[in-house]
Amino acid sequence: MLEFFNYRTIWEYMPLFEEGLRNTFLISIVSLFLALIVGVLACAARLSNWRGLRAVSIAYIESIRSTPLLVQIYFLYFGLPTLGIRIPEIQTGILALMFNSGAYIAEIVRAGITSVPNGQIEAGISSGLSYFQRMRFIILPQAVGVTVPPLLGQAITLVKDSALLSMISVVELTRSGQILTSERFMPAEAFFTVALLYLVIYFFLKYLSGWSQKKLIFRET
């Protein structure tokens, strides 16, 4: 199978793959960070007592969850210019990933917060703790541990999703594979290398996620 495999071309194109990998990292980390903020805000809105805010947040989360990311990317990519907003592709991509992951993270955070048994919150209220004290001392310490493993799962998804930005010609890992394919017509070399690099990231995050599951979730049996 490997007799037609041209390793030299891969080495020759290593700078391109490096650039792709760097951009994939950059895009993933920036949009994960932004998505965390969006997610926490959306989750706060989702759990708030104010009905209008709650409805907006539900509409946001559900509409993101039931449409493909690619359509969301195109929506921003082709839609923003019609509104007169012109930003580089890479920022459009980060924006799309931010809104997409934000919705999923909102659900993850919500699951974490609601996983704290009601009795504890009631106990907190009757001990005279204020809302913020309850959040700070009772809910968050327990919720964070439950939230971290699925968040790492979301990080894996995000890294994979960033591959879709190749469709709007952001030079990330997948795009560098496409470039190699179109310049030399060597799809095997290109995409197996790309897949391998993604796998390295995946196994690293999966290992982290397994570790955090063992370490961070405190649960009585």
Partner: peptide, 18 residues
């Protein structure tokens, strides 16, 4: 693991081009 660790678009390209 391989299926979960690589983006779907890369899998599509592998099937289609390789």
């Amino acid at each position: 693991d391989v299926m979960r660790g690589t983006p779907f678009i890369v899998q599509v390209f592998i099937v289609f081009f390789i």
